[in-house]
Design a protein around this nucleic acid. Structure first.
Length: 424
RNA sequence: CGGGGAGUAGCGCAGUUGGCUAGCGCACUUGCUUUGGGAGCAAGGGGUCGAGGGUUCAAAUCCCUCCUCCCCGACCA
């Protein structure tokens, strides 16, 4: 959907020059400096317009890939009765991180740290027959976890955005098929978000089940370690390793310990939850059988932090194309009667072909506008200044390569769209 | 929860052997001049020095308690 051209002077992008105190992670600093998020208290963040735009783009990529894999979007409640958690005994298992309270009627409630119980209860309400299987449901929703320790801004927060999907199958074969579909969808999601992930076999932990894989991105900050082969790049979880040195995959390379951020985790759960909640279906042979589950999570807000952590330079963020808050920024060097209408005309033309356009029309000094543009990291910048316009020229700058190209005023849109399409 | 660091104007900081009216840079307001890489001059506004208690003639500064934030550890997306 086309949206209106956004003018910075009427928008809300509070950038800062100073590095915020009490921050160490580059992504944390940039999230704050570029005006993407605001911290309310440790582990609790507001999303400002620019940050929200990125979050929404990431969500939409995930939606596309989930829908493509045959999953159906739902929206489950955060507010959950504790009795539900007692059925799986996870009220005890997740005690440490669960935010619990009594409501005014005295009911014991919690804010959902995850949704296996809720989704399983929901499926129990509707699914009775093998004819209704398989089904995969997903949601993108806020999760609440009273983490013992928050970390690196939105990398590990008490309130965060997560995509969680759940598959329901009549047998192991179906589960494995759905698992594979999700696995592939995840690869696609991360690739589209401009991330190179490593995938490792993992422990299932509190989720339960047998087979599980983690999707991680190697970054300077992170809470996980992976061992990666310096020759073939095969990776494995460090927790699963012994002291071996040779790569088990290619036998040539050496395994090196890397810090990584976990972004996604897929599990073949089996019947842990469906057994506990007695969710069964009637199969073709007339037998009652438990439904077989899989669950699949992506830390959506964490993903945004990971993108910044791995896509930046000394001047600021360098957004990957598909998740950038805008496609192009038109920077007016001066407030000038010649320049402004031209900027509006360019903006209009680009908007009409579906690009998301930000016009920096603020009455600020050129230096500050250039610095801000570098900081917020829109992939392309069209620079309109008196000096170059006198020669009939307009400049285009690529945020990633920092390459600049001059075009004549009249050819600009045509030439820019060529660049735009060529780099798709 | 254990260990380490830090809380002074919106932001970043100095001041802390007890001392005078709490300061600097940025940001903000007004005016003039500027305008291709965080502009200049001038005049302004803005502070319960994290909170509470104590010592003292006198506390941002010393003592006690508490709160908050960041980093390292145990757990997770």
């Amino acid at each position: 959907m086309k949206e209106n051209v956004i003018y910075w002077s009427k928008y809300f992008i509070p950038t800062t020059k100073e590095i915020p105190a009490g921050t160490e992670a580059a992504s944390h600093q940039l999230l704050l400096r570029a005006g993407l998020v605001n911290m309310l208290t440790s582990g609790v963040y507001s999303y400002l317009p620019l940050g929200l735009r990125v979050l929404r783009r990431v969500e939409d990529i995930i939606r596309e890939e989930m829908n493509r894999a045959g999953a159906c979007e739902v929206f489950l409640p955060c507010l959950q009765p504790i009795e539900l958690w007692q059925t799986t005994k996870r009220d005890e298992a997740l005690k440490e991180i669960m935010i619990r309270f009594k409501d005014n009627r005295g009911r014991e409630m919690c804010l959902g740290p995850t949704h296996e119980e809720v989704i399983t209860a929901l499926v129990k309400d509707y699914v009775q027959s093998y004819r209704q299987l398989p089904v995969t449901l997903y949601q993108i929703q806020t999760k609440f976890r009273d983490e013992l320790r928050t970390r690196f801004g939105i990398v590990r927060a008490n309130e965060f955005m997560m995509k969680d999907a759940y598959s329901f199958d009549r047998d192991e074969t179906g589960l494995k098929k759905n698992y594979q579909l999700m696995y592939e969808a995840y690869e696609k999601v991360f690739q589209r978000c401009g991330l190179k992930v490593v995938i490792v076999k993992a422990d299932s932990g509190a989720m339960g089940g047998d087979v599980s894989h983690e999707f991680l991105v190697i970054a300077p900050i992170g809470e996980d370690h992976v061992l990666q082969c310096d020759a073939c790049h095969f990776a494995m979880g460090s927790s699963m390793s012994t002291e071996q040195a040779a790569c088990p995959q290619c036998q040539n390379g050496k395994l090196q310990k890397q810090i990584a951020i976990e972004l996604g985790h897929v599990f073949q759960l089996g019947t842990k939850y469906t057994d506990a909640l007695k969710v069964v279906f009637l199969d073709e042979d007339g037998q009652q059988k438990p439904i077989i589950m899989g669950c699949y999570g992506i830390g959506v807000s964490r993903l945004v932090a990971a993108i910044i952590e791995t896509n930046r330079d000394d001047a600021g963020i360098v957004w990957p194309r598909e998740v950038a808050p805008f496609d192009v920024e038109i920077l007016l060097v001066q407030d000038d009667p010649q320049l402004t209408p031209l900027a509006q005309s360019y903006a209009q033309q680009l908007q009409e072909v579906g690009l998301k356009v930000l016009v920096d029309d603020r009455l600020e000094s050129p230096g500050r506008k250039f610095k801000d543009a570098d900081l917020i990291g829109i992939p392309y910048r069209i620079i309109l200044g008196k000096r170059t316009l006198q020669e009939g020229k307009v400049e285009v700058k690529d945020r990633k390569t920092l390459a600049t190209t001059m075009f004549t005023k009249n050819d600009l849109i045509k030439e820019f769209l060529k660049i735009w399409k060529a780099t798709c």
